[in-house]
Design a protein around this nucleic acid. Structure first.
Lengths: 116, 116
DNA sequence: CATAAACATTGACAAACGTCGATGTATTAA
DNA sequence: TTAATACATCGACGTTTGTCAATGTTTATG
């Protein structure tokens, strides 16, 4: 178990000014890189997109496994990364775990990339 | 030498609609993931930021090596990834290689992440 | 031509990553 | 209580990644 797993979920929006506005510091660069690395995977991008497109804008693991063409444990793994990075929330109801987008999380990282 | 190196530099802006607007396809997810993976490294984020902050908004390898605290070959490696991903251009003058931001490249990927 | 400078490329290595199958853990249903 | 379902976690694996030292390449200079 790494240290990262014990820390609270990352708040992507609480950071620095846009990347090209002023020279980014070492720590902010590492944080932003972590946020981007969580997004930089085809399966995880599709998960985010599928969650957003799903009714009530939430989805359980079972909704994602088959369309992704990945094993259940792999999907759980990706969801975990997205939750820890602050892009998704998890709420358990019965035996199901429902995942939702965190409002503003994607916009927060997008804001840091924009140059205009 | 991989196939990727022979292809023209990726155009990040020529892609799909925002990630959360409609379900992203498999190919678009892979392409966007590649674009994000190129950004998802602290050294490369700092390179982009330093190039933007440098005078005339361009910098050579020698400008970057020391502040990054990385070897010259490592910096060249990162620059290569950023050029191939379409974020930087390279122009050689004399023995120097000058790197500049590709206008709109960062905004293109930011646009795909934004939800509003 | 010979040397030096700036950069690219190669090869090697350890660390991180994506995937899977197997197992563990709640929760519901019979 | 037993069985089944939905999901998380673990262990193992092949692949990719970031880094460096060494070498190759190009351009300017003596």
């Amino acid at each position: 178990m790494s240290l990262m797993e014990l820390l609270p979920v990352r708040d992507v929006t609480a950071c620095c000014s846009p990347l090209t506005r002023e020279a980014i510091g070492e720590d902010n660069a590492s944080n932003l890189a972590s946020s981007l690395r969580a997004l930089a995977d085809p399966a995880r991008l599709r998960i985010i997109s599928m969650v957003a497109a799903h009714e009530d804008a939430e989805a359980c693991v079972c909704d994602l496994t088959e369309p992704l063409g990945l094993g259940q444990s792999t999907v759980s793994h990706h969801l975990r990364i997205l939750v820890e990075a602050g892009y998704l929330t998890r709420s358990k109801r019965g035996t199901w775990a429902y995942y939702k987008l965190v409002p503003g999380a994607l916009d927060g990282v997008a804001r840091l990339l924009v140059t205009v």
